[in-house]
C-alpha cells in the first residue's frame, strides 16, 4: 500500500479508475430510472405519460451529465483506452447517441410542439430510451466478452442488451412507485413485479458468463481465500432480491409506507453487480489488453484534474441534493410559473 501511495504513476490511475467507476455507477442508477420511465411509456395512458415525464423532468439532464463525466474521465485519464474501446464499439455507440438525442429532445418537443404531434414525440421518447438502453446493454456484453466480435460474443451481447433494458425498466418502475400515487402507482408496482425476473436472470447470466469467458476472472473468484471474502456479494444480492419481493407484495400500501423500498433495493443490486464487475476486470481498462496503469495520461495532467475534482465534487454533490430536495415528494405537473 505504502509504495502505491508513494508513486503517483500508480495511485493516480487507481484514483481515476475509481472516479470513472463511480461516475458510471451513478449514471447507471440515475439515468437508468430516466430511461426506464421512457421504456415503460407504451404501457401508460396519456395523462400517466405526462405524470411520468414530470417525475423525471427536473433531474434527467443532470443525470445524463454523469455519462459525459464517465466518458470524459475515460477520455482524459485513459486516452489510449478511450480510442480502443470506442472504435471497437463504433456502431453501438452511434446507435446510443441517436437514442440519447431522440430521448433528450422529445422531453422538450412533446410539450412545445402543436398537440397533434405529441404522440409522435412520445414515441420518439420511447424509441430513444429503448435505443439507448439496448445499445448500452450491448456494449456491456461486448466489453465483458473482451471487445471481440464473433457470433458467440454478439449473441451474448444481444442477451445483455435485453437484460440491461429490463433492468432499467425495473428501476424506472421502482422510481415511479416512490414518485407517484393512485392508479399509476398501482401500475408501477405491477411493472416492477414483472421486471424482477429479468433482473434476476440478467445478473445471473453475467455472473455465470464472465468467469466462463475469462480464466483470469474464474481464477479471481473461485480460489481460496478470495471466495470467502467475496461471498457477501452473492449473499447480499439474494437478501436484497428477497426484500424486494416482500416489498412488492405489500405495495401499494395505505399510508405509502415502504414506497421507496423497491428503489433502494434496486439501487443496492445495481451497486453490488457493479462491484462484482469492477473486481472481475481490475486492473484492466480494456479487458485482457490494457491495464489502467498502461493507459493512463501523464501524472502531471492527472494531478491538475484531480485538484479540480476534489474542489468541485462536494459542490456538485451539494446542488444535486438541493435539486432533489426542491423537487421532493410526489410528482406534480411541471409548470414554468
Amino acid at each position: 500500500m505504502a509504495e502505491i501511495l508513494a508513486d503517483p504513476a500508480l495511485w493516480l490511475p487507481l484514483t481515476f479508475a475509481g472516479l470513472m467507476g463511480l461516475s458510471i455507477l451513478i449514471y447507471v442508477v440515475l439515468d437508468g430510472f430516466d430511461l426506464g420511465v421512457g421504456l415503460l411509456f407504451p404501457f401508460a395512458d396519456e395523462a400517466e405519460k405526462d405524470r411520468m415525464v414530470a417525475s423525471i423532468g427536473p433531474f434527467w439532464d443532470a443525470n445524463e451529465t454523469w455519462l459525459v463525466m464517465a466518458v470524459g474521465l475515460l477520455l482524459v485519464a485513459f486516452p489510449v483506452a478511450h480510442g480502443a474501446i470506442l472504435t471497437a464499439l463504433y456502431l453501438p455507440v452511434a446507435v446510443m447517441l441517436v437514442g440519447l438525442i431522440l430521448r433528450g429532445v422529445a422531453f422538450e418537443f412533446r410539450v412545445k410542439a402543436p398537440l397533434r404531434y405529441k404522440r409522435g414525440w412520445d414515441f420518439a421518447f420511447f424509441l430513444g430510451s429503448a435505443l439507448t438502453s439496448l445499445s448500452q446493454g450491448f456494449m456491456l456484453g461486448m466489453y465483458i466478452m473482451g471487445l471481440d466480435a464473433t457470433s458467440a460474443t454478439l449473441a451474448f451481447s444481444a442477451v445483455t442488451a435485453v437484460f440491461l433494458t429490463v433492468g432499467y425498466s425495473f428501476i424506472g418502475a421502482a422510481w415511479l412507485i416512490g414518485k407517484t400515487e393512485g392508479a399509476l402507482q398501482d401500475k408501477a408496482v405491477e411493472w416492477a413485479r414483472g421486471g424482477i425476473w429479468g433482473l434476476l436472470l440478467g445478473i445471473g447470466a453475467i455472473s455465470v458468463a464472465s468467469p466462463l469467458v475469462s480464466p483470469r476472472i474464474f481464477e479471481r473468484w473461485f480460489s481460496w481465500p478470495e471466495i470467502l471474502w467475496l461471498s457477501p456479494l452473492p449473499i447480499l444480492s439474494a437478501a436484497l432480491l428477497l426484500a424486494l419481493w416482500g416489498a412488492l407484495r405489500r405495495l401499494p400500501s395505505a399510508d405509502d409506507r415502504g414506497a421507496w423500498v423497491p428503489f433502494s433495493c434496486g439501487t443496492g443490486l445495481f451497486v453490488l453487480a457493479f462491484f462484482g464487475m469492477a473486481y472481475s476486470f481490475y486492473p484492466y481498462v480494456v479487458p485482457e489488453q490494457l491495464t489502467i496503469f498502461e493507459a493512463a495520461s501523464a501524472p502531471e495532467s492527472l494531478m491538475i484534474i484531480l485538484v479540480g475534482a476534489i474542489v468541485v465534487m462536494p459542490m456538485i454533490a451539494a446542488y444535486t441534493v438541493l435539486a432533489y430536495v426542491v423537487f421532493r415528494g410526489k410528482a406534480t405537473d411541471l409548470r414554468y410559473d
Binding site: 427536473p58 470524459g72 474521465l73 484534474i305 468541485v312 456538485i316 446542488y319
Partner: peptide, 22 residues
C-alpha cells in the same frame, strides 16, 4: 485537451444541469 475538457464538465456542465430544473 484532457484537463481542459475535464474542467468544462466539472465546473460548467454540472452547474448548468444542477440548477436548470430550479
Amino acid at each position: 485537451a484532457g484537463p481542459l475538457l475535464a474542467y468544462e464538465v466539472l465546473t460548467a456542465f454540472f452547474l448548468e444541469a444542477g440548477f436548470l430544473g430550479i
